[in-house]
């Protein structure tokens, strides 16, 4: 793990931002440790949902054996946000999997987000009160920045789980359910104009 640069997160109901580290070059152990740290809180959250008779969020599971191999490849990069010694969010991107579909960038390279997740204590669904806000925003910002560095103009794309589509719809274009995706998830893409809107704070 290496600190790429300083970042920050927001504390709910307060104006102040707290300092956080944007990290990259995560090792296998770093990912495992993050998930072990997240496990108990996620467990609590899921139990609470179950007891309240609420449906589980759309779900998936890491295949740890496969993931370890990917970390060695140039094509994949892992990012995280660390605050208070804990991983607040994780992201894995691919520089070769993304190909533009939006008009104006058809066929152009796009940074593809293979995985993005916040620590369970930051989710309203799972925690009684989220600890930090803006983890998703910071990781999406990191993806956009990395996309720029790679010469992709800030363009990013991803497939979203159903409980997250509302968040992505605010900043990216919804291109619908994608039968090309192993789980048929909804595909989102950000073009350069949306990048500017996202970063500069204008209303889309």
């Amino acid at each position: 793990m290496r600190v790429r640069r300083k970042s920050s997160l927001k504390v709910p109901a307060r104006e102040e931002l707290v300092e956080a580290d944007l990290v990259d070059e995560l090792s296998n152990d770093d990912l495992i440790n993050a998930h072990l740290d997240w496990g108990p809180a996620r467990l609590e959250g899921l139990k609470r949902l179950r007891e309240a008779g609420r449906p589980w969020p759309e779900h998936w599971h890491w295949d740890w054996s496969k993931k370890a191999d990917l970390l060695d490849l140039l094509a994949y990069h892992c990012f995280g946000i660390v605050h208070g010694g804990r991983m607040q969010g994780l992201m894995m991107v691919s520089t070769i999997a993304g190909k533009g579909r939006l008009p104006g960038q058809v066929g152009k390279p796009v940074l593809y987000i293979e995985y993005l997740e916040s620590a369970p204590w930051n989710y309203r669904e799972l925690a009684e009160k989220p600890e930090f806000l803006g983890v998703g925003v910071r990781l999406l910002e990191a993806a956009v920045e990395f996309s720029g560095e790679e010469g992709f103009g800030g363009r990013v794309s991803l497939h979203s789980l159903s409980q997250s589509t509302e968040f992505y719809r605010k900043h990216m274009t919804d291109l619908g359910l994608d039968s090309g995706h192993p789980q048929g998830l909804r595909y989102f893409e950000m073009n350069m104009e949306q990048v500017r809107t996202f970063v500069e704070g204008r209303k889309p």
Binding site: L74, T95, I96, P109, E150
Partner: peptide, 10 residues
Amino acid sequence: IRQALRLYQL
């Protein structure tokens, strides 16, 4: 070239 290298490695 960097893209090609990443693809080749993968």
